[in-house]
Design a binder for these strands. Structure first.
Lengths: 228, 228, 228, 228
DNA sequence: GCGTAATCGAGACGGTACGTCACGTCTTTGC
DNA sequence: GCAAAGACGTGACGTACCGTCTCGATTACGC
C-alpha cells in the first residue's frame, strides 16, 4: 500500500535498500515502502522520510518543466518541496542526481517493449514509443536535460550509462532478440550496430535537428532496416 | 591581404561586418580584416580589438579542454585572456556564445566534404571525417558542450540551429546530392530522412553510448544505406 | 554575565533584539548577549554570528582610518573581516550603515555629560569633550564620514538623525537643563537655539574651516553665552 | 560680449587663463571670452570650447538637483552635455571639481554683503542671505554636496578651502570689519572666533539638524552677539 | 518508559560567479 | 590642438546559489 496525502493518518516511511545514499539504482525495484507513524514527522532514527523524498522529486520535476534546467536549483527545490537543503544533500549529490531519480521511475514504465508478431511491427511500435517518450513534456524534458548534462560532465555520463543506458539498450534490442529467436534475423547480426541504426536517427532528430519524428519517418527507418 | 601576428609592424584591426554585436554568423565569411595602425591598441574608434577577440576565443577553448564545461566561466575566460569582463559582455552574451564563435571557425574548415567518385566512398569518407570531428579533443569537445547546452536552453538550441546546424545539414547531404546528380540515387529520395539514417547512428554513439565509432561500424552504416 | 573572547570555552552568541535586521537602534541598549554553545560557530539557528558582526564593525573602522572613506568598500570590509559579502548584506544595507553601527557604540560612551557645578564649567567641559570627540582619529573620523554622507543622501540623513542626532541633542542640552534646574538660566530659554549657539561654532570649525578648537576658543564661546 | 545660444552665428570660445587646466580659481575673474568660429564646432586649435564648458557645468548641476550626488557621474555628465568624456578629463579632475566650478560662479554673486548702517542690521541681513544660500535648491544643494565630499577627502577639503572658504570668510567678516571701522566693535575683537559664533549656528542647522533657519533664530543669534 | 540516536526544518556562514556600472586611459578621425 | 566617439582594463557593486555547519524538535528503537 502506498499511502498518499489523501490518507493522512497512515503515513509511510521508506527504508532505502542501499547502504550508499547516493546509490542511484532504481528504487522501485525494492519494496521500499513501509507503513508507520503519522503525518509530518520531523525525523526519526529509522530512515528517511518518504514524504520528503517524493516532495523533492516532484519539485525538481516541476521546476524543470516550468523554468527549464537553469531554473532547477537545490535551493529552489528545497523551498518548493518544503524541505531543508541539508535533507537534499543527505540523500542526493546534485540536482542531476535528483532528476535522474525522477527519471528512472518513468523510463522503466514507459518503455517496456511489447510483442507484435513481426519484426517490422515490433520496431515500428517500439520506435514510436521511444520517440513519444523522448519528445514528451515530462519524462522527455528530464531525459534531454540529463543527456545535455552528460555532455558537460564525464562522471555523470558514466553514472547515466550505468543506471539508465545499459538497461535502455536491453530494451532497444528486445525486438531484435525476438526476431532472431523467430528466425527473422540472422544469428550473427551485429546487434549494437543494428540498434544504433534504428534508434540513432530518432535520437538525432530529437537531440539535434528538432525535426518532428513522424510516422513516415519511422516507417522509412524500419522499412529500410528490415529490407536488408 | 590578411596581416597576421607574424607581421607585427602592420597589425590588423577587425571591423565586424554586422551591426548587431551578438550576431553570430560565421565571421570568416566576410573579409573582415583591414589594415591600419600599429600594434596592441586598447580600444579606439576603429572598433573592437581583434587581439582581445582572439584571446577570448582561445581562452574559452583552452578552459573547456582543460577543466570541462563547468570550468568555463566568464571570469575565468577574462582572466586567462587578459581581458576585462566588460569587454566580453560587450561582444558576447554568454559563455556558450563564445564557444559557438570558436566552434564556427573550426567546423567549416574540418567538415568540407570531398568528392570520391562513388556514393559509398563519399559516405565512408564523410562519416569518418564527421566521427573524427565529433570525437576530437578540441572542436569535438566544444561541439559536445554546445549540443549539451542546447538541451538545457531552447533559445540557444535555436541559435545553434541557425548558425551551425543548417549549414551542417548542407554538408551532410552533399554526398547524396552528388549521387543524385550522378544518377546513383533516385530523384525523389527523402534527403533529410536519409541524412538522419546516415549520421544518426554516428551521433548516437558519440552523444549517448560513448561507443567508439570504428571503421567496421561506418562500413555497416554505409553498406546498409547503399544496398537499398 | 557577558562572556568574552577571554572565556573561550563559553562563547556567546548575539540575538539581535529587533525583528528588522536593518533596524539600527543602538544595539547596546539591550542585553543582547546570551550564553550558549561553543567557540567559533559558522551560522546556525541561534541567529547571527556575533564574531562576524564584530569583525565587520572593526574592519570597517580600520579601513576608514587607514584609507579614508573611499577606501571603505563592502568587498574590502568582507576581505578584511574574513567574512562573506553576503553576510554583510544580510545584516547591513550599505557601508554607511556599518559605520553608523560602529559609531553608535562609541558615541554614547564618549559623550556622556558630567556635572561640574556651574553652567560655565559644565559647558566648558562638555564642549571640550565634544571637540575632542569630533576631531578624534577614530570615532571622530567615522562621525565626519557619516555627516559627509548625510549631505549626499537624504534618506541616510534621516536615519542618522533618528539613530544619533536626537540622542546627541539630549546630551547637548543636558548642561542647560541642569542650569535651568539650578536657576542659573531662565525657564523660558529657547534651548534648541541656545544649543546651536554653543555647539554650532565648534561644528563649524570641525566641518568647515578646519581651524583647531582650542581652549581659548571654547572659553570665548562659553563666556559669550553665559554673559547674557 | 558674451554670446549666447540666441546668437548662434557668433559663438565664443574661452581661453582658460591658467596654465594648469585643473586650476580652479573662479574663471569669471578673467576676461576669458574671445570671439571666434561658428556654432557646434568639434575641436579647433584655438583653445577650449566655451560651449562644452558651460554644457558640462550645467549638466552637472542639473544631475545633482535631479538625481542627487550619487547620480552625478562623469559619464552621465558627458552624455547629458553631449560632450566626450575625454573633454571633461582634459579640464577637470573629478566630478567634485566640476561642481566646485559651478558653485564658485554662484557663491560670489549671491553672497556679496551689503551695508545697512548698523551692525545688527548688517548681521541680520547677511545671515539671512547666507541661510537662504545654504538651504537653496540649486547653489545650496551643490554646496552641501561639496561640504559632504570634503569630509571624505582631505585633499578636496583643502581645495575647497583655497578656492571658496577663504573668500567666504572675507565675506563673513565684512559686517564686523565695517562695525569696527564705525567704532561699533572694539579693535581687538577676535574676528575669526566671532565669525564662528555668528555663522556656526546657521551651518549647524543646515548641515546637522536640518532645522529651519527662521527669522526668530537669526534674531536670537544676532541679538546675543551684539549685546556683548 | 526512557534515554539515545538518526533525521528533519531552519537558516547563517564562507565562498564563487554572475551581470552591471562607472572609472580613468587610450586611440583615432574630423574640424 | 581640441572635440566626439567609443573600446579598453579595472574594480566594486548587489544578487543568486553553492555546499557546509549548527541547532532544537521530533520520533522510534533498544535497554
Amino acid at each position: 500500500m502506498i499511502a498518499t496525502l489523501d490518507a493522512p493518518l497512515r503515513l509511510v516511511y521508506s527504508i532505502r535498500p542501499y547502504s550508499d545514499p547516493h546509490d542511484r539504482r532504481p528504487v522501485l525495484q525494492a519494496p521500499y515502502f513501509k507503513e508507520v507513524g503519522t503525518l509530518a514527522h520531523h525525523g526519526n532514527r529509522h530512515g528517511r522520510s518518504e514524504e520528503a523524498r517524493q516532495a523533492v522529486l516532484r519539485a525538481a520535476d516541476d521546476l524543470l518543466v516550468e523554468k527549464g534546467f537553469a531554473g532547477v536549483t537545490i535551493e529552489g527545490i528545497a523551498a518548493a518541496a518544503g524541505v531543508a537543503k541539508q535533507t537534499i544533500y543527505r540523500w542526493w549529490g546534485s540536482k542531476t542526481d535528483i532528476l535522474l531519480d525522477t527519471f528512472l521511475e518513468d523510463a522503466a514504465r514507459d518503455l517496456a517493449s511489447r510483442e507484435h508478431g513481426t519484426l517490422a511491427e515490433d520496431l515500428r511500435a517500439y520506435l514510436r514509443q521511444l520517440a513519444d517518450f523522448l519528445t514528451g513534456n515530462d519524462a522527455g524534458a528530464v531525459f534531454r536535460a540529463l543527456i545535455g548534462h552528460a555532455q558537460h560532465d564525464a562522471a555523470f555520463a558514466e553514472t547515466l550509462r550505468t543506471h539508465y543506458l545499459d538497461e535502455q539498450r536491453q530494451r532497444d534490442r528486445a525486438p531484435l532478440d525476438r526476431a532472431i529467436a523467430r528466425g527473422e534475423l540472422p544469428n550473427d547480426l551485429d546487434i549494437p550496430a543494428a540498434v544504433d541504426m534504428l534508434v540513432g536517427p530518432v535520437y538525432h532528430r530529437v537531440l539535434m535537428t528538432g525535426d518532428p519524428v513522424d510516422e513516415a519517418f519511422i516507417d522509412q527507418v524500419v522499412e529500410h532496416f528490415v529490407k536488408r
